[in-house]
């Protein structure tokens, strides 16, 4: 990779196009070949940010060039996709629940894009790189706008309380409650119907709409 292209206006146009989400295939190829030549514009950008916002620590490591980072990210994503597939498949098969079979199929379908043979991976390399380049571009754009936000004189950074929220990995499929009326009414269904009623009866206390939310009682399954 040569550094002679670092002031090449065509190269800067390609970089600009990438930031604008308008890069063509040629632009992408040009950027992939450029490698270290993009370091200086990126470093200049970084220096401007630092000088404007000394209080903000920007952790982006510009010593590693953009394309190398994108390549590393793609490799990482590919490995993660393969890992996710293996983990999800083993989890789903061990549970052996009918409701999760469809998820297993979906996971397989999604990961089949990630696990591909060598011949197709080369053909797809440029196009598969595009989303990652676009991601890198959007990150950069976010930094620019964030910078502008903090530059505004009447915007004082304030301490924002963070709320930790738990993460659930597998989303349960949602079925309709009216199915209860079609199923054999065992004790479990009767219990659930009773709870639906009690919820409607008690929840009106907090709804602030008088007795009207109890109208939902009518829609709940009631066969016993």
């Amino acid at each position: 990779m040569t550094t002679s292209k670092e002031t090449d206006p065509v190269m800067l146009d390609s970089l600009s196009a990438m930031f604008d989400d308008e890069a063509s295939e040629q632009d992408l190829k040009r950027l992939l070949e450029a490698d270290e030549s993009l370091d200086k514009p990126m470093q200049a950008f970084h220096l401007i940010q630092q000088s404007l916002h000394q209080e903000l620590a920007i952790s982006a490591d510009v010593s590693v060039n953009l394309v190398s980072r994108v390549r590393a990210q793609i490799e990482q994503e590919d490995q993660q996709a393969t890992l996710d597939y293996n983990v999800q498949t083993s989890t789903v098969t061990s549970i052996e629940q009918g409701s999760l079979v469809s998820q297993q199929t979906l996971v397989k379908g999604a990961s089949s894009d990630a696990i591909e043979d060598e011949s197709t991976s080369k053909i797809k390399s440029v196009w598969s790189l595009w989303p990652s380049l676009a991601t890198a571009a959007s990150v950069a754009v976010v930094v620019v706008f964030t910078g502008n936000y903090f530059m505004a004189p009447d915007n004082i950074p304030t301490q924002v309380a963070t709320v930790e929220t738990p993460q659930t990995n597998v989303t349960l499929p949602v079925t309709t409650l009216s199915e209860l009326n079609k199923q054999p009414l065992d004790a479990d269904n009767q219990r659930l119907q009773s709870y639906l009623r009690q919820h409607a009866e008690q929840a009106t206390i907090s709804a602030g709409q008088g007795i009207i939310p109890m109208a939902r009682l009518v829609s709940y399954p009631t066969e016993e």
């Binding site: 629940q97 409701s99 349960l172 499929p173 949602v174 079925t175 309709t176 409650l177 009216s178 199915e179 209860l180 479990d188 219990r191 659930l192 709870y195 639906l196 009690q198 919820h199 008690q202 929840a203 206390i205 907090s206 709804a207 602030g208 939902r216 829609s219 709940y220």
Partner: peptide
Amino acid sequence: GMASISVFVDAVNKPKKATMMSMGATMAG
């Protein structure tokens, strides 16, 4: 203040499959 969630806890002898059901805005898990 607007939405409410009722939580019921029962001691049971055998496990039941995790489920999620809906009807309009009402969700039951």
